[in-house]
């Protein structure tokens, strides 16, 4: 790979990263907080690429043989592969197919007390992560009888004939470390297809056993009040693993 090939690869990478940033598509691959590092990387890639191209062209004019002296190993061409995959396969992010492969997340205890909830002015919007944490660890049972609004995608499972597993992935760096966060939504009405994004207003159904008594198979259930299909996934399809519990 000579100097001009190198500059072409660098600029192409810079452009595809910019495109992912512009369309928001990067959110399907990495956490939102990678936005600024990615912007920085795209800028540096384009600067390096343009600089190398300019220098390469000038040297080529002066000394036609110089181009081969600056050649490096051709393994660098592999950097174009992610681009080819992005265009040809159009990956859709983590969904039902990924949820089948990885055990759902079991929340760790994060706080001694959880703030009380007030749903008098309408359903409380909550991250699936927080819902799981309160359902598992909150001794004051703050979720009880409250209407909670969750957003996630549908994963059908034979164990839930009258509903689905409302699923959101927890991603700390990139989609490869994604772990499903799942609430079994019962009484959900008409069956929905896998990977449909929904907003569900639900009421927690307390478990009959405690977390300590269930070995590795902890399931959190809720009854659906309404389930609304949303046409598009949210801008940040994944949740971060950082607890928002205070107190």
């Amino acid at each position: 790979m000579n100097r001009l090939g190198r500059s072409a690869v660098l600029v192409a990478l810079g452009i595809i990263v910019s495109r992912l940033l512009w369309s928001g598509g990067y959110g399907w691959f990495v956490q939102q907080r990678m936005r600024w590092p990615l912007i920085g990387a795209a800028v540096v890639l384009v600067i390096f690429g343009v600089y190398e191209a300019a220098k390469g062209v000038r040297e080529e004019g002066r000394d036609p043989e110089s181009i081969n002296r600056s050649a490096g190993p051709s393994v660098g061409w592999l950097l174009l592969l992610p681009l080819v995959v992005l265009i040809s396969v159009a990956p859709t992010g983590l969904g039902a197919a990924a949820a089948e492969r990885v055990d759902a997340y079991t929340p760790t205890e994060a706080a001694d007390r959880y703030p009380a909830l007030d749903d008098s002015s309408g359903p409380i919007e909550m991250r699936v992560f927080d819902f799981l944490e309160r359902a598992t660890w909150d001794d004051s049972r703050s979720l009880e009888d409250k209407t909670i609004r969750l957003e996630g995608l549908v994963v059908n499972d034979d164990s839930i004939p009258d509903g689905f597993k409302l699923t959101r992935f927890m991603v700390s760096c990139c989609a490869a470390d994604g772990i499903p966060l799942q609430v079994d939504v019962r009484n959900a009405g008409a069956a929905l297809e896998d990977d449909t994004w929904v907003i569900a207003d639900v009421v927690w159904r307390p478990s009959e056993t405690s977390f300590e008594d269930t070995e590795g198979d902890w399931i959190i259930e809720a009854d659906a009040l309404t389930v609304t299909v949303v046409p598009d996934a949210p801008n940040d399809p994944y949740e971060s693993p950082y607890s928002t519990a205070s107190e």
């Binding site: 990478l13 990263v17 992912l20 990067y26 399907w28 691959f29 990495v30 990678m34 590092p37 990615l38 920085g40 990387a41 540096v44 890639l45 992610p82 995959v85 992005l86 396969v89 159009a90 990956p91 859709t92 992010g93 983590l94 197919a97 990924a98 760096c173 990139c174 989609a175 490869a176």
Partner: peptide
């Protein structure tokens, strides 16, 4: 589905590593 999932995982490892590599 599996090909798409592979593509998601592959591209996301690349995208995640790129800023650190730069």
């Amino acid at each position: 589905q599996d090909v798409r999932l592979w593509a998601t995982l592959f591209v996301s490892v690349c995208v995640q590593a790129l800023p650190f590599l730069v």
